[in-house]
Simulated assay, not measured.
Amino acid sequence: MKVAVFGPDRRVGVVHENTVVDINAAYAKYLAETTDTARPLVEAAAAVPAQLNAFIEEGARALEGARAALEYLTDQAQDARGVTGEQLRFALDEVKLHAPVEGASRILCALANFADHMQSAAENSQRADTEATLQRLLAGGPKFFIKDHRAVSASGDPLRYPARTERLDYEAEIAVVIGRAGRDIKGDDFASHVWGYTLFNDWSIRDNVAFGPDFAYSKNFDSSATVGPWIVVNEGQDLQDIPVECRVNGELRQSGNTSSMVHAFAALGEHLSRDTTLLPGDLIASGTPKGTAVDSTRQEADGSLPGTLFLKPGDVVEVSSALIGTIRNEVVKPTD
């Protein structure tokens, strides 16, 4: 099931055959037309909520209700109008899909989590201290940073080129979405806390990056976390076998798979949940494979990076997976 957030009211929808179905309203219709319930709208609000995090928290009941409503609407219903006559099904190209992240959900990002990415960066560095830093990042347990949830953007949103950089980079990633709250989660139990997975572009500033107190500054700016286009839920996919690619202006730059993560999602979940409760709707991003501009560019002796492969206004970046879909964004001028 592909669960999206759509429209001006940011309602939960299920993507089906190039349409998105308002699944809360569709479930109310299902109840009104197939049961003797006196208050279908009230029951639907409780069982199949219209807002994302409430829908996630409702767990199996919401997914089962969504599945029943979709089957009824597709195979049995006489029309595609809701209890109050509202439209239930919308063409994907007619509605705005928002990033499937709600409210204060945390975006927790793995750092230095693909060996080929880090090795390529080390090989392209002419500074011994840079290579030593990269090797330290690979050593030991998981490393992570936080993206501001208010910096989230959706597929189709323009990416305003940050005025403070001359080296803007892309990072194609997979993110898992937490479905069941947990603290001190054991790695072998982490999968039971995962609700689904989605695409993630970790836009990054690469000018004079230092892995210290200011590192988060290079990772956070308006629209710097593109998520979507939807969350794939409950399809039995091995989280450590999800492909991901990145294209810039149609040119393939990255092609990887979560099977190559240094620390698997289970290890990340165990690490991040120590003394901290992971909550429904939180995201954990995988880290990125080889092929970013920074790991593909030969560093000058003074530590500077030639700008050829870095993004510029007008570039179109697509992050995709055969198991999910595609998120696409155009980089625009800082003044746009």
Rank of each mutant, 00 (worst) to 15 (best):
K2D: 05
G7F: 04
H16F: 12
T19K: 13
A28V: 06
K29H: 06
E33R: 10
R39S: 15
V42D: 15
V48R: 05
L52A: 05
A54E: 15
R61N: 12
L70P: 01
D79A: 01
G85R: 02
R89E: 00
L92H: 01
L92R: 00
K96P: 00
G103T: 03
L108K: 11
D116W: 00
D116F: 00
Q119E: 14
S120H: 07
N124E: 01
Q126K: 15
A132N: 10
L134E: 05
Q135L: 06
L138K: 08
K143H: 14
F144G: 01
I146L: 14
D148W: 07
D157N: 07
R164C: 08
T165S: 13
D169W: 08
I178G: 11
G179A: 10
A181S: 14
D184R: 05
K186G: 13
F190C: 04
W195V: 00
W203L: 12
S204N: 03
Y217F: 13
T226H: 04
V227Q: 06
G228A: 09
P229G: 07
V232I: 12
G236I: 04
G236Q: 07
Q237E: 14
L239I: 11
L239N: 10
I242V: 15
P243C: 07
C246I: 05
Q254P: 02
T258G: 12
S260L: 14
M261Q: 12
M261L: 10
H263K: 11
A264E: 12
F265H: 05
L268S: 08
P280E: 02
I284L: 12
G287S: 03
P289E: 03
K290M: 02
S296P: 06
G303T: 08
T308S: 07
V317R: 07
S321K: 04
K333R: 10
D336K: 06
